[in-house]
Simulated assay, not measured.
Amino acid sequence: MQDEPTPEELTRAVADFLRNDIAPVLSGHNAFKLRVAINALDLVTRQLRLEDGSDAAELGRLSQLLGQPGSLAELNRVLADRIAKGEADLQTPGLSGHLWQTTMDKLAVDQPNYGSYKRELEASDAAKKPSS
């Protein structure tokens, strides 16, 4: 592990440079390709920031749901196999919540500005606030 700057800081700095200094002078197809590259860097930055926490939470949910230890990849394969065999479905206690939270965690990285994602976050936040 390197010290400073972190990989997150590096990707954010490159994306900001491209967004603020290079994008304004490009047009046409090159401007489009640059926006794609900036979006990819933004996605990588979010993944670097969020993946440790979301992966650990997903692993914990899977271990509890499946009743066994394993790596994230192994437990996801076990869950997929159980679903494919009909041994687990949305009536399985905890499965629906796990799938929902995993989806929300993935959207936080991939599509944090997606309207439905934002509405769900707001609804979740509102549900957590104590009523006066």
Rank of each mutant, 00 (worst) to 15 (best):
L72Y: 02
Q2G: 14
D42H: 00
G67A: 02
A40K: 08
R19Q: 15
S131T: 05
N20Y: 15
M1P: 14
Q68A: 00
Q68F: 00
T6Q: 08
S63W: 01
K118E: 10
V78E: 06
Q111G: 02
T102A: 15
T6A: 08
L79K: 06
A80G: 00
P7M: 11
D3Y: 13
S131V: 05
S54V: 08
S63M: 14
Q64M: 06
A23W: 06
A23L: 10
W100D: 09
R35T: 13
E4W: 15
D110E: 08
R82I: 02
N30L: 13
S63L: 03
D125L: 15
P69W: 00
W100E: 12
I22R: 12
D21M: 06
S96Y: 10
G53Q: 07
P112W: 03
N20P: 11
S54C: 07
K129N: 12
N30M: 12
L90I: 10
T6D: 08
P93K: 07
E9K: 06
G97V: 00
L90F: 03
R61W: 12
S132N: 05
A13H: 05
L62S: 02
A15V: 05
P112K: 04
R77H: 03
G86Q: 03
Q2N: 14
K128F: 02
A13V: 01
V78M: 05
I38A: 07
Y117Q: 10
G115A: 15
E4M: 11
P93E: 05
S71K: 07
N20T: 14
A127N: 05
L26R: 09
S71I: 04
R119W: 07
E58I: 08
N113W: 00
R46N: 07
Q111Y: 11
Y114P: 05
L26H: 12
L90E: 11
S27L: 10
A84G: 14
A23F: 10
D42L: 00
K118A: 13
M1F: 11
L59T: 09
L41E: 04
Q68Y: 01
D105H: 07
P130C: 03
L50C: 03
E8Q: 04
Q47G: 07
N30Y: 13
D81E: 14
P24L: 06
V36M: 12
T92V: 07
P112Q: 02
A88C: 04
T6R: 04
A23N: 04
A108F: 02
Q101R: 14
V109D: 07
L18Q: 09
L10G: 03
L59H: 10
L26C: 12
A40I: 03
L107Q: 10
A126W: 00
T92G: 07
D125G: 08
V25Q: 09
P24A: 13
G60R: 13
G70H: 01
A73F: 01
S131Y: 11
V25T: 12
V44A: 08
G86L: 05
K129T: 13
